[in-house]
Amino acid sequence: MKWNRESKLNGLVVLMAAAGIWESVSRLGLMNPLFFPPMSKILSMFFYLISSGEILYQVLVSLKRAAAGYFLAALLFIPLGVAMGIFQWLHRSLEIIIETLRPIPPPVVVPVAMLFFGLGDGMKIFVIFISCAWPILLNTFDGVRSIDRVLVYTARTFGLSHGRSIIKVILPAASPQIMTGLRISLGITLILVVISEMVGSSDGIGYFILDSQRRLKVTQMYAGMLTLALLGYALNQIFFLFHSRALAWHEGLMKRNR
């Protein structure tokens, strides 16, 4: 415990040192301060943007899009993955189309989505939705397919209907892998919301960063990047907290099997 706390402190020291180096490199003119402003200026800009509400607004706009695409994908592709894991025929019929579509890099969906949805929220939500599809679908499918037969028989001998055995046995048994899919998708969501906002938008954190750069408000651009870093960190922490609560049993089981 003591060592762990120390190592976290060490990490903080390294972070401070990096900020210090950044500051000096800029102040000493080792890099053009116009493109590489001192960290202190970036931070004060960051706090200014927070107090003015500008950043909060942009982040909320982006988060709304991200959440819509992410949860829509979970809502559709977890059930589809479960169905594919249960019904062999469904897996066989969808396997080839999934394997063909999956290698397409998600940003490529942006121009297609623009054709159908224009530049509005729909485009971004659709892009995120499609990009999250594969990790969620394939991890859920794999989790359900690899459930031991004995567990399925157990549900049946206790007289569970198909619906109840999915809720009471299949979903919990596959939940560690479903969570893996959701975690991977979370990272993808953040990337795609920014990309789609950079390509076609008039608000959102992605737009804010690109727009700042175009207007040569470089400090503001860096402040936007800092915001994204903190946002990503916060989302991961929230997910991690949820994960360690909901899947404490799985962590324990894995440790036991090691």
């Binding site: 031991d148 004995v150 567990l151 028989y153 048994a173 089981l253």
Partner: peptide
């Protein structure tokens, strides 16, 4: 039916109480 492979048949995500409660829930 009680299976030989209890380690596969029990619900790893439920406590002992939760596992036994399952019998009642079912």
């Amino acid at each position: 039916l009680v299976f030989q492979e209890f380690n596969k048949s029990l619900f790893a995500w439920r406590s002992i109480l939760g596992n036994v409660l399952f019998g009642l829930e079912a």
